[in-house]
């Protein structure tokens, strides 16, 4: 068990989401930074898609009720364990009674707290991810609150030796980002100038950002006609442009259908950069190709495989 003593801003249990029900209107949900979730899980020897805690902007204070291998990844929240600094993207051995404290994120927006054995809330429709709008998954279908106790699953053995990801290997978190995009499916609803504006301008993240979507503001993107399309399927990463010309990027909790023209979609490996963006930061968009996007997916997978291999070799010989 681990207890949330004093909640930060927003915290919820997330894994890689709830695929397979999109045709019934069920959003994917799951971690907004899937790379950080996977890395945190690998650091404690979990399946990379195990359930962990997603912390937003400020992580609050937690108390361990048992000895436990834990890890953090994602935004750097100046984390301390009983007062001693915890490196970003690292695992550490907590003791029963230990206090883990997350402050305001220095950069980035979301950090992940993984626990050896995973957060053991019930599987709902194949996932432990919280989709709070429908009260599904996570702890009682809701965001975490002061006093919540999270059960931790059983694990075989003590797990890998504590390890910190080398600073050079830590993926970027926050501070503005360039997201690679594939144009479409409704790029034909925009003028050539509109597409050029979109690809050459900076768009500021507004305070209207959450797991469902990020509203941005910047130079208006010119449409050819009305922004409304016949309602059609919508994925996380899709960039909708309503009549205002101000783009909205859909997040993990995006509804499954939408009625605004979609100028482009952020490629999967770059979607984590959205999850780490916060209000006031500038985002830019760079057009890419299917081949380059597929290469980026391969690189993302190779990076996680390399991390898994390094954890395995560092932990060789560790005994319980």
């Amino acid at each position: 068990m681990i207890v949330l003593v004093k909640a930060g801003l927003l915290a919820s249990v997330q894994d890689l989401g709830r695929p397979g029900f999109r045709d019934s209107g069920m959003p994917l949900a799951g971690a907004m930074d899937r790379t950080a979730l996977r890395a945190a899980n690998l650091l404690v020897g979990n399946d990379p898609g195990a359930a962990a805690v997603e912390l937003t902007l400020m992580g609050g204070s937690w108390r361990f009720e048992a000895d436990l291998l834990a890890a953090v990844a994602g935004a750097d929240m100046a984390t301390t364990l009983d007062g001693a600094p915890v490196a970003p993207w690292s695992s550490f051995q907590a003791r029963a009674g230990s206090t883990l404290l997350f402050k305001m994120a220095r950069s980035g927006a979301r950090a992940y707290l993984a626990l050896r054995g995973g957060v053991d809330v019930p599987l709902v429709m194949g996932s432990r991810s919280t989709y709070a709008r429908a009260g599904v998954g996570g702890l009682q279908g809701r965001l975490l609150m002061n006093g919540d106790r999270l059960p931790v699953g059983r694990a075989d053995g003590p797990g890998p030796a504590p390890l910190a990801v080398l600073p050079a290997e830590v993926p970027p978190c926050g501070g503005g980002a360039t997201l690679r995009v594939l144009l479409g499916p409704q790029d034909d609803r925009f003028t050539a100038e509109g597409i050029a504006t979109f690809l050459s301008s900076g768009y500021r993240v507004t305070p209207q950002n959450d797991r469902m979507g990020y509203r941005l503001e910047g130079p208006p993107i010119a449409l050819r006609g009305a922004p409304d399309i016949i309602t059609d399927p919508l994925l996380p990463g899709a960039i909708q442009v309503p009549g205002s010309g101000q783009p909205i990027i859909m997040g993990a909790d995006a509804q499954t259908t939408g009625g605004y023209a979609k100028i482009a979609a952020v490629i999967g490996p770059d979607l984590r950069l959205l999850g780490q963006a916060r209000a006031g930061e500038l985002l830019h968009f760079r057009r890419t190709t299917q081949a380059a996007a597929v290469q980026a997916v391969r690189e993302e997978r190779a990076g996680l495989a390399a991390l898994a291999a390094r954890i395995a070799s560092a932990g060789a010989g560790r005994k319980g």
Binding site: P19, R22, D23, Q290, R301
Partner: peptide, 22 residues
């Protein structure tokens, strides 16, 4: 194909772009 999402006049087909090339 991982998932198929029908809508009014279109369907969305989800696939692994590495394992099932476009």
């Amino acid at each position: 194909v991982d998932e198929v999402v029908p809508s009014y006049r279109s369907l969305l087909i989800l696939h692994d772009p590495v394992g099932a090339p476009r």
